[in-house]
Design a binder for these strands. Structure first.
Lengths: 218, 218, 218, 218
DNA sequence: CATGAATGAGATTTCATTCAT
DNA sequence: TATGAATGAAATCTCATTCAT
């Protein structure tokens, strides 16, 4: 299923649209593309499926996006911010640090191991070889942003004297991976067919907080 | 002019085989397939490319493998054990626990973040949605096996009174993810274009061991 | 330089059609398919040949027909009614029964033994093993229909007191096979390379009528 | 499934075999070929299937037969005499003419409408377009031979004063087709999925004899 | 002479993309 | 601008035939 043309310069696709283009039509196309790409991956999706799902004609898609790759990129661009959403907000509050970390981790694991996110990440990682900048961009908007927020939170906690962390950037990574401790990895490889149940999540999260605080708590 | 025999080693190379299927030819095909799949992923690879890369004819591939999926599966089967190799051996030795853990983690990170393994894992995760049993099998032979060995190691250390771990299975996962703390994840998304340099590895590994021992050391 | 539009009649040719599928294009494909299938049979025909003969691209064929079998079936469906045409009409008229039977038989033999019909029947019989429903359907539209009409004619003649037939259904079959008496069979096996000449037809037909009336005349 | 080479001059295949060739091996191959061709037709049969069914290797087949067509031809050559076998013998005997005709016709219909013969004839007719000489040759050995014998029988009956037939050649054809009266034709088109049951055969045969004798009896 | 692994042209079918309407 | 019929390159897979052993 090799691509016919290496897609020279994406004509438009990026964002700003020429005179006469209908932004709602663009949204409509992206919505259809999202559903189809998520179901079948990049190579598995046919432009036919996408036009059918979006309810527009083939020609119209090519008015808004110069190629399949361009469309895929635009969709990633639009979606990447949405996935992690407001998880960060859970870190804030008057509760003790461990409680807030637990709350945050619980939500993070549940989200990352959900069918939707796993599917999405599989698709993105699968295309990272062909379109590396896309994977990177996606990570920027997803994991990277979350990491930055978490680091800032840790900085504040350190400043407040509630944690003692020499390298909060590294610690933020550590907490994130401790939270999923193998669950996410196994989900990506389909070694876990279903999202982990609440008990497993709870056990993993509790241990993650405990290990983290054993190292960085006061 | 057909290239009837382009193969480096002409004859057999191994020895006895029942009906005639030449194992060296099989190996030759799998080698070619490995290179092509690794470059382009499952969907992106064409059987034409593979035959060209392997130096055999199209028909020959189908003598040894009944379909593209079959070929892909056979290749995964062959490769999955090789990747992690003897990392586990580094856990053994007379040295103190932290030293052995550091040695192990250093190697694990270097391996997991290597271009080859990252590429490989990207391909596998990319196909895990379509062929879940293959991803799972790969994980069984790779991560799962490593995890089991690590858990057994931790069990022995606990028994020896050098560590205090309530759940060694969970702890094994935790150590593994702490070792790569975000590096592997970023590599998968091509957010890190190159393998991490030695200093970054060292810093990450050292911190991983420190955190782990802070939680589970005596 | 692609031959984007090679079609003789460019536009439509027919009139209203719901979604856009061009009936003239469909006809064009069926015409090409008919020629190729008739030359080489089902298995011997390649879709490439058909597209070339029809003057359309490969993809276009698959827009109108979902598979080679589908195309073949559609063509049989279209042709089966045409072959026997208005032979039946020859049975009607004010002339004496024997004259009408002779006229009918003469035309039937000529038609059945014509190159076109023989070729067609060979193809259909050749595929009847693999696609029985198609052969049956063809026979329904061809021989079966003719047989029914002939039986009805005989019924009327019996009712009119001009013939005495205990089983008109069986008699209809008998008259039809008497008319071709071995000629059709030999044509099918290519034992007769050419259609029988007029004299042979006349002799066969005359004898058929004579035998038939000897048995069922009054 | 077009043939690669138009099969220049069949090297051997015809009959006489070069020094060193094993006639029993030739028979073995033909037996396998007969089974496979009869199941799938000419185009549908693969040389692989045939070698497997015959229990010989590919190379061996090509020692005895120069091509797939050659093999098919040789098999038809061998089989064509066998099918109709000793039906003719049923015409002889001390019984009255009508009884002998009935006995003969009964057997003829049963044989011609049997699954095996129908399948065989379908295959032959299906290939008659591509290989006309084969169909003709087959008919020579089958129908034609039967027809000759029947004509000779009629000649004798005429000579004996038991029948009055101006053209025994034509009459032989007429009796043969009256005997199957549509049954065979419908079987060839798969319009009759099963061989006709005994009652139907009996009715058809009885009527055939009656019609025939009404025209040609004394 | 017998074997069957290997060949590679060619089969059917799909699909990203174009362009006349 | 929107449409979707048409394109044709390329995909996977088959198979008659050859030839080194």
């Amino acid at each position: 299923m090799a691509l016919r043309k290496k897609a020279g310069e994406p004509a438009d696709g990026g964002g700003r649209h020429a005179a006469g283009e209908d932004p709602s039509k663009r949204t409509q196309i992206l919505d259809g593309a999202k559903r189809v790409f998520s179901r079948t991956g990049f190579d598995g999706a046919s432009m036919n499926d996408i036009t059918r799902e979006a309810g527009v004609s083939k020609g119209t898609v090519y008015v808004y996006f110069s190629s399949k790759e361009d469309l895929f990129g635009a969709m990633v661009e639009r979606e990447r911010e949405v996935l992690l959403g407001d998880v960060i907000a859970l870190l804030e509050g008057p509760e003790p640090t461990d409680e807030r970390l637990t709350r945050y981790a619980r939500r993070l694991v549940t989200l990352l191991c959900s069918d939707e996110v796993v599917r999405w990440v599989q698709v993105l990682i699968g295309t990272s070889a062909k379109m590396p900048e896309l994977g990177a961009k996606f990570y920027e908007g997803g994991g990277q942003k979350g990491w930055r927020k978490l680091r800032e939170f840790l900085d504040r906690e350190v400043e407040a004297g509630r944690l003692a962390i020499p390298d909060t950037g590294l610690a933020a990574h550590q907490f994130a991976v401790l939270a999923t401790a193998g669950l996410w990895r196994r989900r990506l490889f389909a070694h876990l067919a279903e999202p982990p149940d609440a008990a497993l999540v709870e056990k993993t999260v509790a241990s993650a907080v405990q290990v983290f605080l054993a190292a960085y708590g006061r």
